[in-house]
């Protein structure tokens, strides 16, 4: 397989009587051993049987796949070797197809096309009607998209929280004023909506932590040191599930947006641009935690007409 051999056009493989590849004849120059291909094919034989047997005996993925891989590799190796070394190194050359860059050919093609187009466009009015009717037909098919789904209406702006909704845990157990000790948290839902993705909240009991900043207008939202934020990330909508006790931040596991719980859940690191909305809380006469209303701004990732 030297370079010299490749430049000779149609250099026949060392074959036939003097040094037949794979034959038992004299080993002339360029003689190529056949055993690698033989070994490959034997591997395929054995591995194919192994594959079938391991399938029947319900063997593990490793055995099954190992045999299948070996069977493929064996025959693949044999064929690649055959094509590269045993079949001989025939090198041929030929012309590339050339584009019709001659003016004559181009003119002929142009004429032919021109004539075809003229046959159609001669009828001016009909041509215009064809374009018009065809265009309207294509546009009319766009309405089919409407079958796919509804327009958003209010679903992106509202959640299942209503004035007086009781807070419940994952298991539906109501949250009372004694459920959390200061410095602890849990995940809560509006009663009756345990599966509501956009209503999930992180409920924290800040207690009397002096670092906690109550934002203007939210003085009545955190009774007895309870404060609740939407658990849907304002970046890409994942549940903001990681609570870091030391830093008092919530971190989103998807893109690591980090929200400061001591300061209105403002984003302090990562890609989120807006704080987690806060849910106004109240405590009812039975000592249950409830919502004063729905969130005052849309929860979750931003959208165009949210602003």
């Amino acid at each position: 397989m030297s370079d010299d051999a490749r430049q000779t056009h149609a250099a026949p493989a060392p074959s036939g009587e003097n040094g037949a590849p794979g034959g038992h004849g004299p080993r002339g120059p360029g003689w190529v051993p056949t055993w690698p291909a033989t070994v490959g094919l034997v591997v395929t034989l054995v591995a194919s049987v192994g594959f079938a047997v391991s399938f029947i005996r319900d063997a593990s993925t490793q055995w099954l796949g190992g045999f299948l891989a070996a069977a493929l590799l064996g025959i693949g190796l044999a064929l690649a070797y055959w094509g590269r070394d045993l079949a001989g190194d025939e090198v041929i050359s030929g012309p590339y197809p050339v584009p019709h860059e001659d003016a004559e050919g181009r003119a002929a093609l142009g004429d032919a096309l021109d004539q075809s187009v003229q046959v159609i466009t001669r009828r001016h009015f009909l041509t215009k009607m064809l374009v018009f009717a065809g265009g309207v037909f294509v546009l009319s098919q766009v309405v089919l998209l409407g079958a796919l789904g509804p327009r958003p209406k209010n679903s992106l702006r509202t959640t299942s929280w209503r004035a007086g909704s009781r807070l419940v845990t994952f298991d539906g157990v109501p949250v009372t004023r004694d459920t959390l000790a200061a410095g602890t948290f849990l995940v809560a839902f509006p009663e009756g909506h345990l599966d509501s993705a956009d209503s999930q909240i992180t409920l924290l009991r800040i207690g009397a932590d002096p670092h906690f900043k109550t934002l203007a207008g939210r003085e009545s939202w955190s009774p007895e040191g309870y404060v609740a934020y939407s658990r849907v990330c304002t970046h890409a909508g994942c549940p903001v599930a990681q609570y870091e006790d030391q830093a008092k931040v919530l971190v989103c596991p998807c893109h690591q947006s980090t929200f400061d719980l001591m300061n209105g859940a403002q984003p302090v690191a990562g890609p989120a641009g807006r704080p987690l909305p806060q849910l106004p809380l109240a405590i009812d006469a039975q000592g249950n935690l409830t919502a004063q209303s729905d969130f005052t701004v849309p929860v979750g990732p931003g959208f165009w007409d949210e602003g």
Partner: peptide
């Protein structure tokens, strides 16, 4: 030549 080789490569890759 080429057909043998590329069939071989296909099987090798699949393997």
């Amino acid at each position: 030549q080429y057909a043998l080789r590329t069939t071989g490569y296909f099987l090798l890759l699949a393997g």
